[in-house]
Amino acid sequence: MKSLFILPFVCGAALVTACSATPPPKELVDARAEMAQARNGAAHQNAPAQLHVAEEELNLAEQECASDCGSDKTKDRAYIALRKVQLAEAESRLATATNDAAQASQQVQLTQAQMNANTRTELAQTKDQLAQAKLQAQQAMADLARIAATKEDERGLIITLNGSVLFATNKDVLLGAADTKLDQVAEALKGKLRGRMIEVQGYTDSQGAADYNVGLSQRRADSVRSYLVGKGVPADKISARGYGKDRPVADNATAEGRADNRRVEIVVKPIDGSVSSTN
């Protein structure tokens, strides 16, 4: 009878020994490891509430293990604890990604705003430059109109200089008296007619051989061009061409008409105009 009374204690002790000897299930080992990793990782900062829930679940698993480490309940609790730790880590990853996306979107908006502001500034600057260029061109036209006879036709702005002011008869060397007028023309042209090409065109009256007249008008146009280039008009923007007796502006039957036909025209072409030949 006494031995029967002792039996439950012996069995209980054996059971406790068996339980304490049972190693923790893989689920619990994994959950503990994952929790240790999460506590030292970003989840600690980004998902503290979920991590706390996972800790509570892990405690339940540990309590089950303390009672019976090999039981299904211990495995289930540990399995669920592991998933809750992983859930906290996934929440943390989601928070990080959401934050990264928000920061990048903010950066995109900021950069776009800066680009728009820059574009507006550049546009305003371009408008100012165009307005200034237009003003300068108008000023140049006005200056030229004061210096010489000017008109506009399909070729562009035409500045007409009388041949007798520039050259002696049958000569292609500029007269000393021509300097003042050509200096004024050069001053008006240089830097104020941006983007526009200039052609110096030489003309004679109808007297004399045509070839001679073409040659003389070419040399005279060249002389004027060289002078203007020497005074600062860009060489790549100005060309010269002799037309001889072509395009008379007056009647070659009269001395007065022939004097008018002996001339040099400086043609300021429209912006899209091209130069038919260069010297």
Binding site: A90, R93, L94, A97, D100, A101, A104, S105, V108, M115
Partner: peptide, 23 residues
């Protein structure tokens, strides 16, 4: 949560690439 995080990762990478291209 993994599916949500994956989508958020893709969105973040896309936004970051856009920001980089713009810069």
């Amino acid at each position: 949560e993994i599916a949500k995080a994956q989508k958020a990762d893709v969105a973040a990478q896309s936004a970051q690439a856009q920001a980089k291209t713009l810069q």
